[in-house]
Simulated assay, not measured.
Amino acid sequence: MRFYLIGAGVINRTHAEAINKIEGEQDIVIKVADPNPAALAAFAELFPNAITFTDAKEMLSEEPKEDDIVIVGTPPFTHFPLSKLGLESGRHTLCEKPLVMNREEAEALLEIAKANNRLLGCCSVRFLDVPKTEEVKSILNSGDLGEVYKISFVFRGQRGRPGVEWQPQSRWFLDKSKAAGGIVMDWGPYDFTILNDLLQPESIEVAAAWTAKPETEIDPTDVVYDIEGAVGAMLKYQQANGKSVWVQYERASCTHGEPYFTVEIEGTKGAVKWSPYFETDQVLVKSDKNGEVITKEQTIAYPGPIGYMDHPVHFFYKKVKGQESPAIVNEQAVFNFSVLDSIYESAKNEQPVVLRRK
């Protein structure tokens, strides 16, 4: 089986490690293209069996096979043209998050994928199929919480901006024309992949949204810095059963306020609280007994050896092979991305935005 990696940087090295963990597949071939000689040499040192190219178009020029996979691991402003290249070469294409720069590009990629009968996937699935969140899903679907009316999904960090405090050498993170946005496009793909997987909405209304750019004394002044560091939104999730759930959403990679996180689903008979990420493996379920709040606590660790960072490749591989998989592809990938675009639109115009599943 052949994997074609576009970009030889850190993220595609991670994907190459994930490819090497695939079991039961004979003769896996990794090919990688990057115009940067230093990046290509560093990749080849780690993966000496990889076949290297300086041009992605040349790499993809050979006749495609039915199960070929292209992985785009480059900055966001290149995602559309490189994913288009992969799909039009006749290959299934998995793209890093965020999927593209805007909704128009997302919808255009979907049409290209459908025209070529290929799968278009996004790497925003890293935190799907995690045991603690699967337990939360089971609790949610059991009805034990009663009628669910609200979800709080809040992560506030004081200093964690890509391009400043984290990976400061990569200043392109700060330029919206290259990164597509700030914290919305950095963590939003994961957040709304999880929320949409839990709630399976027919439509989402972004009732109100805001973005902000908190300032610090180390803000760079020698580069373009026009992305948000904080976002908030109220979203109404309309489900297939006719019921709706309100989601209070907030993210910050920079704030002068209190740092904290809370992810909690509240219903008329109980509530469940957890973190879908790294903060804790605890799942707390609260309910009532004889007029008193009772708490049941579980600790559900995530066993290896396949980790969060391996998920995108492993899930997409299974999908391409026709196996059951939580991979997010095609219409669902575009729908999830469009939530992010709708938050920006609502914040900019100070108007609600309704997004319906097609």
Rank of each mutant, 00 (worst) to 15 (best):
M1R: 06
I6K: 05
G7R: 05
A8I: 07
G9P: 10
V10N: 14
N12G: 01
T14F: 13
A16T: 12
E17R: 15
N20L: 14
E23L: 09
G24V: 05
D27V: 06
A33F: 03
L40W: 08
F43D: 01
A44E: 11
L46H: 14
P48I: 10
A50N: 08
I51D: 03
T54W: 08
E63K: 15
D68L: 09
I69A: 04
I71W: 10
G73S: 02
T74V: 15
P75W: 06
T78V: 12
S89N: 02
P98E: 00
M101W: 07
L109N: 00
G121W: 00
F127Y: 15
F127H: 15
V136Q: 02
E147L: 09
S152Q: 11
F153Y: 13
V154S: 08
V154G: 03
R156Q: 12
G157H: 12
G160T: 06
P162Q: 00
P162D: 01
G163S: 04
V164N: 01
Q169F: 13
V184Q: 06
G188A: 07
I194K: 04
L195C: 03
D197V: 03
L198E: 04
L198M: 10
P201K: 10
V206L: 08
A208L: 09
P214R: 01
E215Q: 13
E215W: 10
V223P: 00
V223H: 09
V224F: 13
E228A: 01
A233I: 04
M234T: 11
M234I: 10
K236V: 10
Y237R: 08
N241M: 03
S244C: 09
W246K: 13
W246H: 13
P259F: 05
E266N: 13
E266G: 05
T268G: 09
K269Y: 14
A271P: 00
S275H: 02
P276H: 03
Q282K: 15
L284H: 06
G291C: 02
K296W: 07
D310L: 03
H311W: 09
V313D: 04
F316P: 00
Y317K: 15
K319H: 05
A327V: 04
I328A: 05
I328P: 05
Q332Y: 07
A333G: 02
S338N: 11
V339F: 08
V339H: 05
Y344W: 11
Y344V: 03
K348D: 11
Q351V: 08
L355S: 01
